[in-house]
Design a protein around this nucleic acid. Structure first.
Lengths: 336, 336
DNA sequence: CTGAAAGCGCTTACAG
DNA sequence: CTGAAAGCGCTTACAG
């Protein structure tokens, strides 16, 4: 592979001039610039990012950090981030902090970030004080998607509003006996979004004077399987809810499956609603509150690029709330 | 942040000695090594990967390239790759080659790889001759997951065997009128796995003397939505299959939903089987042929590390076929 | 066992 | 507008 020296020699100029010409800096004559471009193209020259980084201090790489990757939300948002960054000549270094045990995660370490990335995007990741201190010490800009990180730029949906809309939808259909799936177990401090959703659920129930049954608030590890298992127990009790609001579509899908397994019809015997608009929700007829995850990924990437001094997208500020939308499908109906 | 020079000064040795001591090379006295370690720790020293790369030619980064990311298979395999690489001090630079249009993808370019990664892992990505030539020119080892790439190391399942098992399962239940969902449209050259599955389906049908109806071989863009839409048309025809074999669980889920939407019961009126064992398949009661995607990601990462001279995992060779397993659930039964 | 020095391939003031 | 040179922070022969 050819280096900047090869190009300089062939073009009959200094390496400094090649560097300036190729990066589009001014103070280069049009004629020289053109000659350099020609030679660079002929030699298939691409500047070594490694050398560029050492000299400039920039890597053109952004660290994307997630507590896990294998759920719909994360894959979708990572895809959007990657595409947006690549359009602006940047790349994503991916970190999956999932640990063997569900009740903890791996910590962010200096060797993941130091001189490796220009900035960080977190995905629903509450950061510890030490991690935040690390990011600050390394001077890295940070944008948080979902769960906020201190006062850093943040892109998210209004979790409370989303769950309010879901619950109000059930109430407006006439439901009074409503269960909730997706409470945060106390051992999972690194997953916080659900708390705001639960609070909103309670608020709506209370505002309508509806009773909140403690045993109808189900915890979950956020998976369809565990939501289904918990729901089956719930549905076997003598007192049964007529509707379930789940904090995510994946859990809602588990709830629907559990209802069917218990011989109940959805929505005739049990209404179910989730939050997300998961890729499978449409085909499964799940009512939900849709969030635009792709937009969140794109916006977060654009904010970070702007913090790096690269103009990208429209400046919508540093704290963006992406709107959600109630989508009524076949899984919700008035109680029998 | 401190540099190797800081450590050398504090420890009273040369930078060369610090470099050797910290990397565990021999020809360093135990006493010196210990002193260097102490100082390095006290100064929070982490070698600049950017400088290390320039000097050594190694980046400790692996490029992971996928035709898209937002499907279950890809997210799962990327997660496994990332974890395996990180255990060995390597990181993943992620490329999502999805384009606006489904019938093409972005090409792999020199600026994504050159001096940026030490090797490449492809995920179900048929490479063009130019792309392969590029990877060769850059001297990068490559491991392919799924779709093979020339004669490079490869980790995959036996696609033919998987679909044979799925189809044989339906035949053994007594089905004779079987449809297939997931044929590859001719415009999607960058997605090839399904072709082997379709061939295997045909082979089994033929070996049992069962008729193959041309209109029962459905193409698909590999999503649940399109599989559902196509299946609904299929099920409205006067002549109907009693079973459907789908090339993936996501499509099979679409088929089940379509059957229900048409008022048919699964499995009484229509049996459905897929391939994958998707995260939602258990809860939805979908019969399937399970593949271990996490193992595929781990094995591919280990092979690549070994090609880079890093001992990782057990050496299982360079061409690994990960076994699959028929999982019978509630979506398949004898025809009515 | 240890150090001085060259080299990796760029960028960036500084002169001119 | 252009070039010579220092510098980014490591690794790696080469001496000793």
């Amino acid at each position: 592979m050819s280096t900047i020296t090869d190009v300089a020699r062939e073009a009959g100029v200094s390496v400094a001039t090649v560097s300036r010409a190729l990066r589009g800096l001014d103070r280069v004559s049009p004629h020289t610039r053109e000659r350099v471009f020609k030679v660079a193209e002929r030699l298939d020259y691409v500047a070594s990012p490694t050398a560029t980084s050492l000299a400039s201090g920039r890597t053109q790489v952004v660290g994307v950090v997630a507590p896990f990757l294998t759920r719909w939300f994360f894959a979708t948002v990572v895809s959007a981030i990657e595409k947006t960054l690549r359009q602006h000549g940047h790349h994503v270094l991916l970190f999956d902090l999932e640990d063997e045990s569900y009740d903890r995660r791996l910590p962010l370490k200096q060797n993941m970030l130091w001189k490796r990335v220009d900035g960080v995007i977190t995905l629903n990741l509450p950061m510890t004080a030490e991690e935040l201190e690390l990011v600050d010490r390394l001077g890295l800009p940070l944008v948080a998607i979902g769960t906020p990180v201190a006062d850093r730029p943040n892109v998210r949906i209004d979790d409370a509003q989303a769950m309010r809309d879901a619950t109000e939808h059930l109430v407006s259909l006439g439901h009074e006996r409503i269960a909730y799936v997706g409470a945060v177990p106390s051992n999972v401090a690194h997953i916080q979004t659900p708390q705001a959703r639960l609070d909103a659920f309670r608020e709506v129930m209370h505002s309508h004077g509806l009773a909140e049954h403690k045993q109808w608030i189900l915890g979950s590890d956020w998976s369809a399987d565990s939501a289904a298992a918990d729901t089956r127990i719930l549905l076997r009790a003598p007192e049964r809810p007529t509707a379930v609001a789940a904090a995510s579509d994946e859990m809602a899908i588990g709830v629907m499956a559990a209802a069917r397994a218990e011989g109940l019809r959805v929505p005739e015997d049990l209404s179910v609603i989730g939050i997300d608009d998961h890729a499978l929700s449409n085909v499964l007829g799940l009512s939900t509150v849709r969030q635009d995850v792709t937009a969140q990924g794109r916006l977060a990437a654009e904010i970070l690029l702007r913090q790096l001094g690269i103009s990208a997208g429209e400046d919508a500020g540093t704290h963006v709330v992406v709107p959600t939308e109630l989508v009524v499908r076949a899984s919700t109906a008035p109680p029998a």
